[in-house]
Computed example of a mutant assay.
Amino acid sequence: MPVFGAQRVYKDIASFHGAITAVTSRELAGKKIYRAFGNASRVTPASESFAGGFWAAAYWGVGEVPKTAKAWRESAAVLDDWNANGFMVVAHLPDNLAELWPEAKAWIGRIAEQYSPDSPFQYLEGGGEQLVANFGKNLVEQITAIGNEVKAAGSNEVRTEMIDGVRFDFFKTNWKDVERVHGYGEASNKQAATTRRLTEDEVREK
């Protein structure tokens, strides 16, 4: 894979649906990307999550930031038990990103549907655009540190920071209907069962 040189890479990622494209900072320039993060949930098993994510491979949504919990859950297919939330970080990647972050690399593609393996069954369709990115350990640690301060403050004010030449906005979502609400019910149960059955059939055929 030319973008990653001699490094070992994985081309099949269950969180993607359809084609996955390897990109560099040159292709990422001009895009808006975002991540949800937050304190551990009191309702679900979701543990604390961090603004920067895991430095070697962090998930970011691409495009306009979802304005509601429903839009975020359904388009990003983030199961309730997976990711603590309550806050959002948005990066406005400038046109000269290749000069600022020359080593940045990512996979970009559409988000796959997801379903929970156990009751209460949850099914989320996905379909939004996402990237799995390596922006470097130092940058991710800076994003996480600011995110931790934002979580601790709990303010409704937007905090804007320039990090390595890129503008980042950190803010509280104030979503109230974010857990045990979206992706449940009879229709979701049927869709999850169908998806699970198709997956099992595919595994048996292999």
Rank of each mutant, 00 (worst) to 15 (best):
N83I: 06
L131S: 06
K137C: 11
S15I: 09
L28M: 14
L100S: 11
S49N: 01
G183Y: 01
D81L: 11
P2K: 11
I146F: 04
G185M: 08
A58Y: 01
K31E: 14
G128M: 07
V158K: 11
G127S: 03
A71V: 09
T199E: 09
V62E: 13
G53D: 02
E103Q: 13
V78H: 03
L198M: 14
E113C: 01
E99C: 02
Q191H: 12
E48M: 13
G109W: 02
V181N: 01
G63M: 09
N189V: 10
G165V: 13
A19I: 10
E99Q: 12
K137M: 10
D164Q: 15
A187M: 13
D169K: 03
K176G: 03
R73I: 12
F37P: 03
T194G: 00
F37Q: 05
T44Q: 04
V178L: 00
W175G: 04
S25L: 03
S155I: 05
N85K: 12
L198Q: 12
N138D: 13
A153H: 02
T160Q: 15
A57G: 10
L97D: 00
W82D: 13
K172Q: 09
A112W: 08
V23R: 02
A6V: 14
V140D: 02
A153M: 06
I146C: 01
L131H: 13
T199D: 09
A106L: 01
F168G: 00
F54N: 13
W72Y: 15
V65P: 03
G109L: 05
D95S: 09
E149Y: 02
M162F: 08
N189D: 14
L100C: 10
A58W: 05
R196D: 14
Q7C: 11
M88H: 02
E200C: 03
F54L: 14
F87N: 11
L124N: 07
A112L: 06
F170T: 09
K11F: 13
E205P: 00
F168E: 07
N156E: 06
G63K: 04
F171T: 04
K151W: 06
V43Y: 10
V3W: 02
W60P: 06
Q191G: 04
Q142R: 10
V78W: 00
K206D: 12
E161R: 04
V178A: 05
K190L: 11
R167M: 14
F135A: 05
G136S: 02
A57I: 05
E103F: 14
V158C: 05
T44D: 13
N83C: 15
A69M: 05
W107Y: 15
L139W: 06
L100F: 08
A106G: 00
A36C: 08
N156L: 01
L100I: 12
N85T: 14
P66W: 07
R159F: 00
A57P: 04
